[in-house]
Design a protein around this nucleic acid. Sequence first.
RNA 1: GAUCGCGUAGCUCAGCCGGUAGAGCAACUGACUUUUAAUCAGUAGGUCGUGGGUUCGAAUCCCACCGCGAUCACCA
Length: 476
Amino acid sequence: MAALRADGVDPFAPNSFGVTAKAAELQTKYGSLENGQVTEDHVAVAGRITSYRNSGMFIDLLDDSGKIQIFSHKDSVPAETLARLAALDLGDWIGVRGIVRRTPRGELTVNLAELTVLGKAMTPPPEKFHGLSDVDTRYRHREYDLVGNEESRKALRARFAVLRALRNFMDSRGFLEVETPMLHVIPGGANAKPFITHHNALDMDLYLRIAPELHLKRLIIGGLADRVYEINRCFRNEGISTRHNPEFTTLESYEAFTDYNGVMKLAEEAIEAAALAVFSKTDFHFRGHDVSVKTPFRRARMTDLVREATGIDFLKLPDVADAKAAAQKLGIDVHACHNWGQVVEAAFAEKVEDTLIQPTHVTDLPKDISPLAQGHRTEPLLTERFETFIAGWEFCNGFSELSDPAEQRARFEAQTAQREAGDEEAQYLDEDFIHALELGLPATGGLGIGIDRLAMLLTGVDTIREVIAFPTMRPK
RNA sequence: GAUCGCGUAGCUCAGCCGGUAGAGCAACUGACUUUUAAUCAGUAGGUCGUGGGUUCGAAUCCCACCGCGAUCACCA
C-alpha cells in the first residue's frame, strides 16, 4: 500500500478503465490458438488477482466470466510498471491492456503492456486451494465466500438467471409484471405466521406480507391487465431449515379467462422454460433423485393418491370423526386437525408426499384447507386447486380463483372459527378483499411458484441458503 | 423447540489418554523470470467461542451460555 502511494498510485481514488474483453470471451475466441502462438490483437481486461507467481511475472486475473493469465516480462515491461506489479497483492483489482497469445505450455495469456490499479484488498482472500468452507462465515460474509468458491458463484448466478428466465417466459406469455404492497394491514393469501412491524406516523402495526395473492387479484378485478405476475419476496415468521428462509421469493401470476387446468400447463411450461433457458436441459439430480422437468407433468387427485397409498378413500368418509378414526388407524397424528380437509392433508403428507419424485400436479385439494379456491365443479368437499410436487417437495400451488364474494365471506368465517379453535395460521377475514370481489372477478387461474426451491432443484444444492445471497442469520 | 456434532493463526486443519500452542496457504523480508496449488531461505502472527469449575497445572476433563451445522418437530 505504502509502495503504491509512493509510486503515485492511490487504489482507493476514483478511476475508470474501459474493458474490451471478458476472460471467457477470450478463452472461446482464441480456443484454437496454438501453443506458443502470438497474436497482434490488443485487449483490455479487468478483474481480481487470484494467483501471483514468479514475483508477478504470471498473474491469474478473475473477472465475472472466468479467468485469464497475465504475463509481464522484464524485457518487455518498463521497470516502473514491474515495480508497481511487485506492490500488488492477491485480491487486488487491476486493469490490463496488452496483446493475446498462448504460452508454450498452453495457457491463454495477455502480455501486459499497461497496468491500471483499480482497487486494493487490505485483507487477504480465503485460502486459494480449499477456499472458504466454514459455512457460518460463508453465509455471514458472502463476499469472501464468492471470492474463494467457484461453486458459490455458480449457484447464485444460476439463481438470478432463473429469475431472469422466468420473467422472460411470463413476458412472452403476455403477463404484465406488477408490484403490490409488502406492508399489509391484514396478512392474507396464505396460511402462515407473519412478521409484525410498526408505522410511527400512522401509529399502527403492519405485517410484512406472507403472500401477494389478494392484491394481485384486485388488479385483475380492476382490469389493469388480463394477465399479471409479481416476482418478489414473501416473509413468514416460522422456523429456519435447509428448505425454509424467513424471507423467500415467489412468482405469483393471475390469468383471467382460464381455470386450474390452464394454470397447471402454465406452471410446468414455466419450469421447463427456466430449465432450458439457464441449463439447456430438463434432467436434473436433486436430493439424491434423477428428476426430469420435461412437460407434461403427471396429474393425480390428492384423495386418489392417498387411497392408492393407504387403501382409504376419504371421499367416502366425509365426517371428520370417521376420517380421523381411519387416519389414526394408519398411525397418522391427527390431534391438530380441526376438519376433514386437514385429516386428508395429514394423510397425504405422511403417506404420499415423499413418494412423489417426478413432477406431479396433485389436484383437487380439500375445500377446508383452500379458502381462496373455487369449489370443485363435481366434488363438494374439494376445490379446483393443485400443488406441484417434485422430489417430495412442494414447488407450485395454483387454483381456479374463488370469485363469489358471499362464498368467500363464508370461507373466511370458517377460517376465523378455526383460528378461534387454536389454529394460529388460519386466515383473517379481509373485508377489503370481499368488497373487491363484489366488483366482479372474472374466471381466473392463479399460480405460485417457490423460486428458491426451483433454484435449488436446477442447481442441485440441498440447502436453500446456497441460492440466497444473504440468508437470514442470528447475529454472532 | 429437542437430540447429536462442531467452534484452535486471516483461511484450511492437526494437537484433545491434562505438562510452556503446531503445520500448510495467505502476510512481511530476501532470492528466483516461461509459471500452473510456482519454488527456496527467513520473519511475524493465537484472550484455543464466552464464563465458571476440578487440578500444582486445562486447548484437552466437568457445567452453563453464545454461534453454526445435521436430524427431528414446526412449516400449504
